[in-house]
Simulated scan of single mutants.
Amino acid sequence: MTTETTTRTASSVPVAPGSRRTMRAACTVSKETIRYEERPVPVPGPGQALLRIETVTLCGTDLHIWEDDYATELPMVQGHEFCGVIEELPDPHPGLAVGDRVAVSPILACGSCHACSIGRANACDRMSVYGCYDVEGALTELMALPVTKLFPLPEALPAHLASLCEPASIAMQAVNRGRPVAGEKALVLGSGPIGLLCTLYLTSLGVEVVAADTLSARCALAREFGAVDTVLIDPAVPFPVPHHTELLTTWTGGHGPSLVFEATGAPASLNNALRTVATAGRVVAVGISDREVSFSMRTLPVKDIDLIGSRNSQELIGEAAELLARHPRQAEALITHRFPFDQVAEAFETMRSATGTVGKVAVDMPGAAA
């Protein structure tokens, strides 16, 4: 782990008016190396606002980038889950004003690929993502951002929780892809942040949820997010969920859950989902990894299963903010560690040594409200 400090000169980069001419950015310059750089303050162009970043939360993708184990080319300023306060708004925009606290949708879609042409820019073939692909992210004091990517926060949502809108929007997208119906029964495999947020949203829609995880602490947390029961999985058993047939059989009247969410990215977990789901049920895969999975070619057609992928969200940041505002206690429970901006490397180290007690890790930026 390395942290450096340097000054970056870029005389050709436009500078915002006023007395302040530079800002600090935490740049991942190489494997496990963060360098703090002095950079010019950006000037918002047409259709943009200048945002003072308040909070950035980190996810597994961020950890992989820091470890140089991701498709992103370094150096890169990371951070794609973030919120802030509008400092400058050169062009009037309905619903936005200087001083507004906003959450940010980090996806920039091409607008011309097949996915974009059918209204699914969340799966754009050529997308850029702040802090992940092509465009630098939010571990910096100020950013110039398109106003169309800014979503005002409800007053009931504390600013220090607003960076959770991005992961909450991913969970909501996954749930929406599953076409839930109030009163049906859903199994959520994995009670990390995305699985927990899926559970929270499902229960808010009137769906009855059983959640599963390999850690008892996470199972307990799933109950706080609305799960009516939980399954503690033994990871040593290749396909453990079907072993809990008594619980699931009783709960579903012998049919199996009609809707299953795979939120771990583990191949065995997807197999569990396919084995457990009811005939003619739906399985939504939102967990991501590079590991390969195999199952019998009989599985999908014989059970007539809808196997559905889910990626990012279709600009659900505003809806996610409303969900979190209605459930602030659960949102607070998601963030288990906070670090100041000067300790970004320590934040990543904490994520790497994660145990069941590590949930979302937040970085409080210099401009964060006290």
Rank of each mutant, 00 (worst) to 15 (best):
V188A: 11
F239A: 14
A138H: 00
R223Y: 13
R101P: 08
P152A: 12
T140C: 12
L200N: 09
F151D: 01
A174T: 05
V207H: 14
S204I: 10
D125Y: 05
A144L: 00
G131L: 07
H244T: 09
A144F: 01
L108Y: 03
L232T: 10
G192A: 10
T199M: 05
L215D: 15
V210P: 12
A222T: 05
P146E: 02
R223C: 15
A227P: 07
C219N: 11
Y133D: 13
S128Q: 13
L157F: 13
A123R: 11
T203R: 15
A186Q: 07
E155S: 14
L221F: 05
H160C: 13
T230P: 10
I107Q: 07
P158T: 10
A222N: 08
A236N: 15
S191F: 08
S117F: 04
V241N: 05
E155Q: 12
S163V: 10
I194S: 09
G131E: 08
V181S: 14
V228E: 13
S112T: 15
L187Y: 07
S169D: 02
V98P: 09
M127R: 14
V135I: 12
C198H: 06
V147T: 12
H114I: 10
I170D: 04
M127N: 14
M143G: 07
A121Y: 10
D134F: 00
V135N: 00
D234E: 08
G195D: 06
R101I: 10
Y201M: 11
H114C: 09
L200S: 06
A186I: 01
Q173W: 08
G192M: 03
V228D: 11
C110R: 00
V147H: 02
L202Q: 12
V175F: 03
T199N: 12
T199H: 11
C116M: 04
G192E: 06
K185S: 13
V135T: 07
D229P: 05
V102H: 00
H160S: 14
P242N: 11
P152L: 14
S169P: 00
S163A: 15
E141F: 09
L197D: 04
D100N: 10
G183H: 09
L142C: 06
K149I: 03
A121Q: 09
F239D: 15
S191I: 05
A138T: 01
A115W: 08
Y130V: 03
D100G: 03
P235D: 11
D229G: 11
V181R: 15
G131N: 06
A103F: 04
V231Q: 05
I107L: 15
K185G: 12
E224D: 15
K149P: 09
S216A: 15
L139H: 02
F239P: 13
T230G: 14
V135R: 00
G131P: 06
S216G: 15
I118V: 15
A171N: 06
V231R: 01
R101E: 07
D234R: 02
P180T: 00
P106N: 02
A220T: 14
P146Y: 03
L145F: 03
T148E: 03
